[in-house]
Measured scan of single mutants.
Amino acid sequence: ALNRGDKVRIKRTESYWYGDVGTVASVEKSGILYPVIVRFDRVNYNGFSGSASGVNTNNFAENELELVQAAA
């Protein structure tokens, strides 16, 4: 299972961040479909780089994520 702070690569092909590595911000335990919230260094097309207006978190299912580096 994934944990907060883990570095993960995104495998959801239609995602803006496909192939990117993000950090797990939190994992919901309530049984929702996309329980893993991942935070990225770059914002998506809703904002400009360096601006706070873009979105830099997204929810994924565990099977859409590949663990790159476990949290220390």
Results as ranks from 00 to 15, higher is better:
A1R: 12
A1M: 12
A1Y: 09
A1Q: 11
L2Y: 12
L2D: 01
L2I: 12
L2W: 04
N3V: 11
N3T: 12
N3P: 01
N3L: 06
N3H: 13
R4C: 15
R4L: 13
R4P: 14
R4F: 10
R4Y: 14
R4W: 06
R4I: 13
R4V: 13
G5V: 02
G5E: 02
G5Y: 03
D6W: 05
K7E: 05
K7D: 03
K7G: 03
V8S: 01
V8M: 00
V8L: 01
V8F: 00
V8Q: 00
V8A: 02
V8C: 10
V8N: 00
R9K: 11
R9T: 07
R9M: 09
R9P: 02
R9N: 03
R9Y: 06
R9Q: 05
R9G: 03
I10S: 01
I10Q: 01
I10N: 04
I10T: 01
K11M: 11
K11L: 15
K11E: 03
K11C: 12
R12M: 13
R12K: 11
R12L: 07
R12F: 03
R12C: 09
T13C: 14
T13L: 12
T13G: 07
T13S: 10
T13K: 09
T13Y: 08
T13I: 14
T13P: 12
E14Y: 05
E14D: 13
E14C: 14
E14H: 06
E14P: 06
E14F: 07
S15F: 01
S15G: 02
S15C: 13
S15H: 01
S15T: 01
S15P: 01
Y16L: 04
Y16K: 03
Y16H: 05
W17E: 00
W17N: 01
W17S: 00
W17K: 01
W17L: 01
W17M: 01
W17T: 00
Y18D: 03
Y18L: 02
Y18R: 00
Y18W: 06
Y18H: 06
Y18I: 02
G19D: 09
G19E: 08
G19F: 11
D20A: 05
D20R: 03
D20Q: 05
D20S: 04
D20L: 06
D20C: 14
V21D: 02
V21P: 00
V21H: 02
G22C: 09
G22I: 03
G22K: 00
G22Y: 04
G22R: 01
T23C: 14
T23D: 05
T23V: 11
T23G: 00
T23F: 07
V24K: 01
V24M: 00
V24Q: 02
V24T: 02
A25C: 15
A25K: 07
A25R: 10
A25D: 14
A25S: 09
S26C: 14
S26R: 12
S26G: 12
S26T: 10
S26H: 12
S26N: 12
S26V: 09
S26D: 13
V27Q: 03
V27P: 02
V27C: 06
E28M: 09
E28S: 10
E28H: 07
K29H: 13
K29Q: 13
K29L: 13
K29R: 13
K29D: 12
S30P: 12
S30R: 11
S30E: 12
S30Q: 11
S30T: 14
G31I: 14
G31L: 14
G31N: 13
I32R: 08
I32L: 08
I32A: 13
I32M: 11
I32C: 14
L33K: 14
L33S: 09
L33R: 12
L33Y: 06
Y34I: 04
Y34K: 10
P35V: 11
P35F: 13
P35G: 07
P35S: 07
P35K: 07
V36M: 02
V36L: 03
V36F: 08
V36Q: 00
V36W: 03
V36H: 01
I37A: 06
I37Q: 11
I37S: 09
I37C: 15
I37R: 07
I37H: 08
I37W: 13
I37E: 14
V38H: 00
V38S: 00
V38Y: 00
V38P: 02
V38I: 05
V38F: 00
R39G: 06
R39P: 00
R39T: 07
F40Q: 02
F40W: 00
F40S: 03
F40L: 04
F40N: 02
D41V: 09
D41C: 15
D41L: 08
D41G: 05
R42Y: 07
R42H: 11
R42I: 08
R42N: 14
R42E: 15
V43W: 15
N44P: 04
N44A: 05
N44Q: 14
Y45R: 15
Y45T: 15
Y45Q: 15
Y45F: 13
Y45H: 15
Y45L: 15
N46V: 05
N46K: 02
N46H: 08
N46P: 15
G47A: 06
F48Q: 14
F48E: 15
F48R: 03
F48M: 15
S49T: 14
S49V: 08
S49F: 11
S49G: 14
S49Y: 11
S49N: 13
S49Q: 13
G50S: 06
G50H: 06
G50K: 03
G50V: 06
G50A: 08
G50Q: 07
G50L: 03
S51T: 13
S51Q: 09
S51G: 09
S51P: 10
S51W: 03
A52M: 08
A52N: 11
A52K: 07
A52W: 07
A52L: 09
S53E: 14
S53P: 10
S53A: 13
V55D: 07
V55F: 07
V55W: 05
V55L: 07
V55C: 15
V55P: 04
V55Y: 07
N56I: 07
N56M: 06
N56E: 07
N56P: 03
N56S: 07
T57I: 10
T57C: 13
T57V: 09
T57Q: 10
T57F: 12
N58I: 08
N58P: 03
N58K: 12
N58F: 06
N58T: 09
N59P: 10
N59L: 05
N59R: 07
N59W: 12
N59E: 09
N59C: 15
N59I: 06
N59Q: 08
N59H: 09
F60A: 00
F60W: 01
F60I: 00
F60V: 02
F60C: 05
F60Q: 00
A61Y: 10
A61Q: 07
A61P: 00
A61W: 04
E62K: 06
E62T: 11
N63D: 15
N63W: 13
N63V: 09
N63F: 09
N63T: 11
E64V: 02
E64M: 02
L65D: 03
L65N: 06
L65E: 00
L65S: 03
E66P: 02
E66F: 04
E66T: 08
E66M: 06
E66S: 05
E66D: 09
E66H: 03
L67E: 01
L67R: 04
L67D: 00
L67K: 06
L67Y: 05
L67Q: 03
L67H: 03
V68Y: 05
V68D: 02
V68A: 03
V68W: 04
Q69M: 10
Q69W: 10
Q69S: 10
Q69H: 08
A70N: 07
A70T: 09
A70R: 13
A70K: 14
A71V: 11
A71N: 09
A71I: 10
A71P: 11
A71H: 12
A71G: 12
A71Y: 10
A72C: 14
A72H: 10
A72D: 12
A72V: 13
A72N: 12
